[in-house]
Design a protein around this nucleic acid. Structure first.
Lengths: 217, 217, 217, 217
DNA sequence: GATGAATGAGCATTCATTCAT
DNA sequence: AATGAATGAATGCTCATTCAT
């Protein structure tokens, strides 16, 4: 039962056995959290998934809440880093709408392929008590701001319909993407296809009607 | 907080006090469920919200699970009825895309204005154990089939871009709508505005580019 | 297994079954606490002694700590009331030293005959965390002040040796009394005898050497 | 904080580093035990106070219970040795009551100045399970016998009031001394003063009434 | 119809103890 | 000689559920 990568490095120090156990617990927590929700996440289940005994968790995390807090935080933090990296890698002249398309792909790929963390983070935003979301909310805001920037640029370039409210349009788009985790079944649809469909939908949904059709991406 | 009928028959008699108490409990359960999630829904909280004592619930429902099952079922069932009624009320000649637009409005209004049931049902689809979702899943499928029909009609009339996969497009659209419950704040946005923005986004996202029929991408 | 009386009335309302259960739990807690100490007091043991299941305790007390806090508080409060009543019942002209003697008897009788509460309270003063002792400390101080008064009167009347420090003398006396609970075995010594011996010891220990010997009490 | 020998032989070798670590652990245990009580004494706390990790304790003691047993034993054993030494050092002709006075001083000084062991031993007599007190009880009895002897001698010399029961008088006196640990605050009272007051109280408390002014101290 | 009282199952957490290193 | 890592046995506490009234 191979664990997700991607967290081991986050924990700081070297790649000792201890580091790996900690990461394994975090991964397990992300998994359980994404499936069972905040209140349904039992340390017993986390432990079982991480292949150790529940009390061992306390060697690495001070409490269930701290563990969950970290999962929630890592969720969007990873997502934001991933999006930022993707955008930074785009060639300088890329048009705002193309950048949005790239963002759509980044978001979907991270959400669907990489990470229980993201789904955990997304699905439980509403259920986790406020005091566990301080760090997460900061990241969420930062993530939102990136998208705001993308939209603002597109508007400045006249690439977004004037009859759309930028904020609502953005949130509706994010919703379409976030919700994908709820219905996506790996066996049925390729991420590839979902990305393509989402990009078409978003691009056309946002673009002014008599769109001066440029080539995408 | 008027509650839907549709449960009235299940409880037996007319609109007695008993009926109303039962409805109050169901409402309360929907509310708590939509906020706290499946595992976080405690009968104590439900009872408090319904202004009675927890054991009283057992007079109306055999168990916590049954209560939740019913909320989940009612959520999607009400939604379907609402959508169906809206569509049936449309004038005969209404174009498929206009019917989709009407569906978007119906979905959003029901989700945001009317009902904790719908949000409870939507948010907890992934958390409630399978055996409590038998009826709900049937309704979900039925609800999906209505939308499938709407999309099929639109495709038949050439109102949906050929480069979109009908199923994925539909699911992405539903996601945008469903997610609205996560970010909507009554004080900030009017449902009116959300509806309008969603309709624009969906209509343009789905419609073929109006330009001299080649195709994009 | 007959429970101690003396608490039922303290709980306020009538003498309902609920009242009695609450008192039974409190009594049991006092007993266990006096024997096992603060950290050693397990709710399981309390429950067993009170002849119910541990979670039932939570129906009457919000937490283990609250339960213990109440025992500790009741301990000295009862003691203080008992002492005060005894002193108030003394004939007006009673000499200070005779009043001290009466106090010695009151203290010993309450400690040895009546109450696990007092022993619990006395023995655990040092072990119970500060924040649980707010009420108790107030009572303790009040109790101490009564004795201070008794000693002050005796000094004013020249009934206490000048070479004794009033405070230390008082604390040493209290120690002799408090400690009796540690060695007293009902089968071996009668309370009667302990009282007599303590009274002799205290009276002579405190009185100026060439004492104008009056008869006691 | 110099620790008593007397345990040295039990550990084998000379005064190696190992010896000192063992003593440090024992000291720490005595300290924690005297403050938190039997059930409240956690190896973690002992270890922290001894400046090492909890599992290290097992290198020196087979179990928590053994460690505590030894503290309890040492407490009373040290006390007995101390008392015995003090008495042995008294000049041959010393009167019984003067010997008692010397005993009072020895007891108080050891309890207050020297030793967490004694307070641990005294305070936890009632809380530590019987099977850990075998050695301690033997010592306690021995210690008691010394005092019994002192009292017997005093009685033989007519230095103790006939209306006092020797055993109860002795236990009451011991209580006054033992309890001092509960209220003594180094900053407020000097041990000197406590000793003086206790000696006065005890001597006068025990002595026959019209003491024809023979000795002062 | 509804509540007060109580229970049993389960969960987070603590802690003595073990073991490999 | 000592520690990091892990575990099993408790223990406090919560919560759905029952039952007598």
């Amino acid at each position: 039962m191979p664990r997700k990568p991607g967290t081991a490095d986050r924990a700081g120090g070297g790649d000792s056995k201890s580091q790996r156990t900690r990461a394994r617990i975090l991964d397990a927590a992300a998994h359980v959290l994404s499936v069972k929700g905040f209140a349904g996440t039992r340390l017993t289940d986390v432990a079982e998934y991480a292949e150790l005994q529940a009390p061992a968790i306390y060697y690495y995390f001070p409490s269930r809440e701290d563990l969950i807090e970290e999962v929630m935080y890592c969720g969007i933090m990873d997502m934001r880093e991933h999006l930022q990296k993707t955008l930074d890698a785009l060639p300088p002249g890329t048009s705002p709408m193309d950048r949005i398309s790239a963002g759509v792909e980044a978001h979907l790929r991270h959400e669907l392929e990489l990470s229980d963390y993201t789904t955990a983070s997304i699905r439980n935003s509403g259920q986790v008590p406020e005091h566990l979301r301080t760090r997460q909310k900061k990241e969420e805001a930062a993530y939102g701001r990136i998208w705001q920037g993308l939209f603002a640029d597109a508007i400045a370039d006249g690439e977004i319909r004037a009859d759309l409210d930028p904020r609502m349009a953005r949130l509706l788009v994010m919703g379409a993407l976030n919700w994908a985790a709820e219905w996506w079944e790996p066996r049925r649809d390729s991420v590839e296809d979902i990305v393509t469909n989402a990009q078409i939908l978003v691009r056309n949904g946002l673009s002014p009607s008599p769109a001066p059709k440029r080539r995408a991406r």
